[in-house]
Amino acid sequence: MEERIQEALSSIRDAIQMDGGDVEFVSYDGLTKTAFVSLQGACVGCPASVMTLKMGVERTIKKVAPEVENVEAV
């Protein structure tokens, strides 16, 4: 599961880095089916980071790993 999540993040990392941010995989909780990621760089404190997390990161992870039900930033 972690490899698939890492693969999903790699596929969108360039787009996030173009805006000065980054995203890093932290962990996956199989009980709650939640992936935890860390938004970094320009994403920290950015008002659009929630949109990046839900519409970009979460959507991409769910496409590669449909078992993931939630993605949360830590």
Rank of each mutant, 00 (worst) to 15 (best):
E69L: 09
T60A: 12
V64H: 04
G20N: 12
V74F: 01
A15Y: 15
L9Y: 05
V44F: 05
E58A: 12
I12Y: 04
V26M: 05
C46K: 11
G45Q: 02
V68H: 12
S38L: 13
D29H: 03
A48W: 09
R13N: 04
G45M: 02
G21K: 02
L9W: 02
R4C: 08
E67I: 12
A73E: 14
V50C: 00
I12C: 10
E7M: 08
G41T: 10
Q17T: 15
A65V: 15
S27W: 00
E69K: 14
I16K: 04
N70P: 04
E2H: 00
R59I: 02
V37H: 10
R4L: 15
G30H: 01
C46W: 13
I5K: 01
V44Y: 09
V23C: 00
V68M: 13
E2F: 00
A73Q: 11
D19G: 12
E24S: 14
G30S: 14
E2Q: 10
K63R: 15
V26A: 02
M51G: 12
R4Q: 04
T32F: 00
T32W: 00
E2L: 00
E58D: 07
V50Y: 11
T34Y: 00
A35P: 06
P66D: 14
A48E: 05
V26Q: 07
E2C: 05
M55Q: 11
A15F: 13
V50R: 11
V71Q: 08
A42M: 02
R4M: 09
S49D: 06
E24D: 08
I5A: 07
A73M: 06
V74Y: 03
I61V: 10
E69I: 11
V64W: 03
F25H: 10
E72K: 15
K62L: 09
F25A: 13
E69H: 07
I16W: 00
M51I: 15
M51Y: 06
Q40T: 15
I5M: 03
V64P: 01
R59S: 08
A48S: 15
K62T: 06
C46S: 09
K33E: 01
M51P: 01
I12F: 09
C46L: 13
V57C: 04
E7N: 12
R13E: 10
M51T: 15
A8F: 07
D29K: 01
M55E: 08
A48V: 13
I16T: 02
D22L: 11
Q40C: 13
G21Y: 05
A73T: 14
S38K: 15
M18W: 00
M1T: 14
M18P: 02
D29L: 01
Q6K: 12
G30P: 07
D22S: 14
S27Y: 00
G56T: 07
G20I: 09
A73V: 11
I16M: 02
E7Q: 15
E3W: 02
Q6V: 08
D19L: 05
D14Q: 14
P47Y: 04
D22Q: 08
G41E: 03
G30T: 12
R59H: 02
P47S: 09
E3H: 14
P47G: 13
E3C: 09
